[in-house]
Every structure is written in C-alpha cells, then in structure tokens.
C-alpha cells in the first residue's frame, strides 16, 4: 500500500524528468554529427561532389557516396577517389552499372565496394540526408 503511494508521488517527477530529457535530446541532435548520403548518377557534377564533400567534412560530418549509372565513371576519377582517404568518407558503387559502362574492376580502388543496389539501400537507410548528383 505504502509502495503504491510512493509511485503516485514519484510519477509527476518522472514525467517531468522525461520531458526535460526529451528537450535535451532534441537540442543536442541539431549539433550531432550528420551523415550525408551522396547518390552519384551522372559524371556531370565532379567538382560539386568534391567541393560539397570537403565542406561537409570541414563541419565535422560524415559522407557516404554511392555511384551508379553514368556516375560510376567518377569512381575512377583520381580527385574523387582521393576523398576516400579522408576520415569520415565511405564509397561504394553499383557493379552492374560498372560492367555495363565498361570500367574494368581492377581499375576500381580496392577499398571502394563494388556492390549492388543493396549498398544504395544501406546508404539511404544510414544517411540523415541524401542528395542526388
């Protein structure tokens, strides 16, 4: 009986604590590390991909890049590939598109995953925001 009384008294306090925690989490989220997904479907935006990736990294965020379609051509561009050496950058590509375009597998750096649309699905699931180039 006395235990029930304690819970009754503690419940409003616990509720308040929950609200404060929620507010704290919401405010902290704005400054949390963002994972930006970049879906590369063409080879037209090379400089924009490099510029944006560098700017996003400078702000302390992470970048996930997935190349598909004509975008696979950029997976052998030395300046794009060099981004992979930066902390916080991961890259994968659609191997089906790579083959169709005629890029040899041995021309792809070994730490770039020659995968499938599963890797795109994974990027979209993991990234906080995704932009298409």
């Amino acid at each position: 009986m006395s235990g029930y009384g304690l819970w009754e008294r503690a419940a409003p306090l616990l509720l308040q604590l929950l609200c404060v925690t929620k507010i704290l989490i919401k405010n902290t989220d704005k400054h949390a590390i963002m994972k930006l997904g970049i879906l590369v479907t063409t080879d037209k935006y090379r400089d924009d991909i490099i510029g944006l990736t560098e700017a996003v990294l400078k702000r302390g965020h992470a970048v996930i890049i997935f190349f598909m379609d004509e975008g696979c051509r950029l997976a052998i561009d030395k300046d794009i590939v060099a981004l992979k050496d930066r902390t916080g950058v991961s890259m994968s590509l659609c191997d089906l598109n790579r083959g169709k375009i005629g890029i040899a597998k041995q021309d792809i750096r070994e730490d770039i995953i020659c995968g499938s649309q599963y890797d795109n699905a994974l990027m979209n699931r993991e990234a906080d925001k995704v932009i298409v180039f």
Partner: peptide, 16 residues
C-alpha cells in the same frame, strides 16, 4: 559554388 554555405544549409534544413 559556395560549398560551405551549401553544407550549412543542408545541415540546417529538415528536408533536402
């Protein structure tokens, strides 16, 4: 081509 501004705008928005 102000990528720093673009990155900040991406960070600040809810949808892109």
């Amino acid at each position: 081509k102000d990528y720093d501004l673009m990155a900040k705008m991406i960070e600040d928005c809810d949808r892109v």
